[in-house]
Design a protein around this nucleic acid. Sequence first.
RNA 1: GCCGAAGUAGCUCAGUUGGCCAGAGCAGCUGAUUUGUAAUCUGCAGGUCAAGGGUUCGAAUCCCUUCUUCGGCUCCA
Length: 646
Amino acid sequence: MIRITFPDGSVREFEKGVSSYDIAMSISPRLAAEVFAATVNGEITDLSRPIATDATLKLHKWDDAEARHAFWHTSAHLMAEALEALYPGMKFGIGPAIESGFYYDVDPGEGRVITDSDLVLIEAKMKELASNNLKITRREVSKNEALDYFSKKGDEYKLELISELEDGTITLYTQGNFTDLCRGPHLPDTSNIKAIKLTSLAGAYWRGDEKRKMLTRIYGITFPKQKLLDEYMVLLEEARKRDHRRLGKELELFTFSPKVGLGLPLWLPKGADLKQRLIDFMTKVLRKRGYTMVSTPHIGNVNLYKTSGHYEKYGADSFRPITTPQEGEVFMLKPMNCPHHCELYNATPHSYKDLPLRMAEFGTVYRYEQSGELHGLTRVRSFTQDDAHHYCRPDQLLEEFMSIIDLVQYIFKVADFNEYTAQISLRDPENKEKYIGTDENWEKAESAIIEAAKLKGLITTVALGEAAFYGPKLDFMVRDAIGRKWQLGTIQVDYNLPERFELTYMGSDNQKHQPVMIHRAIFGSMERFVAVLIENTAGKFPLWLTPDQAIILPISEKFNDYAKNVLNLLNNSDIRTLIDERNEKIGKKIRDNELKRIPYLLIIGEKEAESNTVSVRRQGEGDKGVMTIEEFIALIKAEVAAEIEN
RNA sequence: GCCGAAGUAGCUCAGUUGGCCAGAGCAGCUGAUUUGUAAUCUGCAGGUCAAGGGUUCGAAUCCCUUCUUCGGCUCCA
């Protein structure tokens, strides 16, 4: 007998070799039907795997990511089985579960193309196969055995994957006639895969390498109940309504024109107003925190970037240089602000007493992004960073770094971003040649970041190999409407540029020393920040930020004069107010302006005109009753103050 | 850049075995109405069907090229 310990601490005895599924059954058949994976002794496994020793056990239902992962991974295999049945000879790359669903990268073979209309057929085949209630079996095989199986099948992609695996760790999973190389875990059978939707079709380079063959990637998602799929589809539709590209057009915030150029955003008045308000707000915050504002040109001599190391790294993938007609001098469009700032640092001598120096600029930069990669405001070729560089003494690094984490947390709070993740990006220890700078400086920088994040109590993930080429960084990411993660804030430690630009300060020992540099952006780029803000708020911006805070709706044209008086009073009190003088009924005016997401609608008619009041209606909430204009002004001021209080 | 899909009025869309002069709703402009908390009524105007080329007696519809957009891949100083 073996002893199984459950998450609540209770212990029960079972026969040796019992499976997690058997255990679930012994508790209740109903539980067994809802469980899709198990964690045994901390390791996620198939439900059907026999347990040989005393163990801790956690059973995973649909609500656990582990359960969904196994469910979708099995679904990927089911899709592969369907593909093999429909298109004999198809070769398979990788087919993992992802955050929402799964995909499989396949090579359909020469001359064969999978199109959207095929997806329906594949779905149908999957449903048919799933209903056969196929048992899924796991088999440990030797490397030779695995190579043998897939070479007979002629699947060179699997062979490549196997050749990189260590002998003794290779497992195959089989359901029906289909066998795949897989680490697992999987469902015990396919009977629970009840609702299937293949969502999209895309090209994907084999192993993400653009020099290698492009495979066809089929995305899908499955659920144990049709109802869950229906809910998912509704959620997707809701997300599409929040898409910043759509709302940007509807709310007249920004636009693009092919005549101006790809990826070059054009800010319409309301969007420009919003962006400027963010900049003004940030400028005020920065001044309070000891930053000085600077300003630098949009181009820089190519030698500047040769000095910084950027030219070597990115020169080939940049906009082509600009040359002067007479002297033939070569300039680059500015892809980042740091080299300019380093020269500003060098313009004046510095004492250890002056540091840290915090130099900030809303600098517009230009980066060549591949045309297929451009996406609304989140991926553009011209964008404005809320960029700053901290030049500090080594002993100040940790404190400076922590103060920036503070600032990020404050700004995200003001923008109402409550769900963000922090990622520490370190150097890939296997590929040190990708980076510049000494090992010693890298280690100092990396430990400073880890220490600062720890001291601030920040929950972080660590990503090896994601560092900038000159130093490690801490990135703050927020999700957009369809769940994609975007990097906004970033804090990066850099010992490298100070060296390359020969930055110095005079120490207390009357010797020259080299400062440490921190690159950081809080919004990241104004464009991307606004995009994420639009999607997170569904266009209902915080009151302090929104382009128009209130609109006056006269019941009829008879009250337009009174409306204009109210408009003047409000605008004089710095409340951004409009007036809707159209000859429409009040219901129509309410509807139209609700849809424009103007926070306050002020309805005025005979009663209000006589008593110097407004009838207040809050967007999305309805009638808030009648108040005097002074009361309304106080209401707005109080709400704004609450939103931006530190 | 690569793979796949798409592009009809300012917006959302209808219009495929190729066949009068390309339609609707919303938005816009007229006029009437003077309105009390999410759509008042009338009329008008609005399109080289993304652009260019081809097939055809005839093209929004079929073919080719280009541009742009969408979903991915790759990249992101």
